[in-house]
């Protein structure tokens, strides 16, 4: 029988600084054992528990697309014990991984829909994974228009800058990158995410929205989505809670009777509206 607490050994390929404040890094891992790689399948929006022996485990959303073989990315903001240790890792080091965990984005339900992606902070990482998944040549035809609004507090805090420029060049994705406050060299949009969202004309009828970001962004964006006519059943959020086990046992990540680690982290707004407001 499988031991759900046993981490799979992973090798660090890269660990690169993403942001000007050096507080966010993207960690690229590969499998040490082929057997582990063969059985690892995930869908965008799922997460894992990463562990540094001696420091402990913490949950992170998978930032790369499942279409990319051989490596898995995580974008990690340094806030405490485990994240600091993860920042210290160098190529060749070993790290433990348990997963994939959670439900992920409802990729089957999203087929043939226009997809509206709204992200902020490191919460953008799983949305980046899903966007790259959709943009893959094998998958692009299964999705309608793709619109992405992505915001950061300032230009230095934007993630995946090279990839964002590549997306800019494409004509099959509408990208709106914004910062709360620009600097001299910033030529893009300025304004918080909800304000930018409000300015867009979205065909509410056939559009599904995926939102992930800091609580304030979510709080002010949801009313705007309602104004745009996007129904709660068509709006999905990826949530964050304190987690330990990731498999519905340790008892700390629930909202009402739902465990964010197993029933989530992705919930439709319609589902959330039925749950207690305790998140």
């Amino acid at each position: 029988m499988k031991n759900p607490y046993l981490p799979t050994p992973m090798k660090v390929e890269k660990n690169v600084i993403e942001t000007g404040d050096r507080n966010i890094k993207t960690l690229t891992l590969s499998f040490l054992n082929n057997k582990d790689e063969e059985i690892f399948n995930f869908i965008p929006g799922q997460f894992v528990e990463l562990s540094v022996l001696g420091a402990g485990e913490a949950p992170f959303g998978i930032a790369s697309s499942p279409m990319e073989k051989k490596h898995i990315d995580f974008t990690i903001s340094k806030v405490g014990l485990v994240t600091a240790q993860l920042h210290n890792l160098e190529p060749g080091d070993t790290v433990g991984m348990r997963g994939p965990l959670g439900n992920g984005y409802p990729i089957e339900l999203l087929r043939n829909k226009n997809i509206f992606i709204i992200g902020g902070g490191f919460g953008f990482s799983t949305l980046r994974a899903f966007t790259n998944f959709m943009l893959h040549p094998d998958n692009r035809k299964h999705y309608g228009d793709i619109t992405v609004v992505y915001g950061a507090r300032n230009p230095g805090l934007l993630l995946y800058k090279n990839e964002l420029s590549e997306w800019e060049q494409r004509n099959d994705i509408q990208l709106h990158v914004t910062v709360d406050k620009g600097d001299e060299s910033w030529k893009g949009k300025t304004g918080v995410v909800p304000v930018i969202v409000k300015e867009l004309s979205i065909d509410a009828e056939n559009t599904t929205t995926l939102v992930c970001g800091p609580p304030v962004m979510i709080k002010f964006t949801l009313p705007v989505l309602a104004e745009l006519g996007l129904a709660p059943q068509q709006t999905y959020l990826s949530l964050e809670m304190k987690m330990k086990c990731g498999i519905g046992k340790c008892g700390r990540c629930n909202i009402g009777s739902k465990y964010v680690c197993t029933d989530g982290p992705v919930f439709s707004l319609a589902q959330l509206n039925k749950l207690p407001q305790e998140y």
Partner: peptide
């Protein structure tokens, strides 16, 4: 039945 999972380490030997 709620629980926590923590690592304890000493001299490069440890336990989860």
């Amino acid at each position: 039945h709620c629980f926590d999972i923590v690592d304890e380490e000493k001299n490069r030997k440890g336990e989860r």
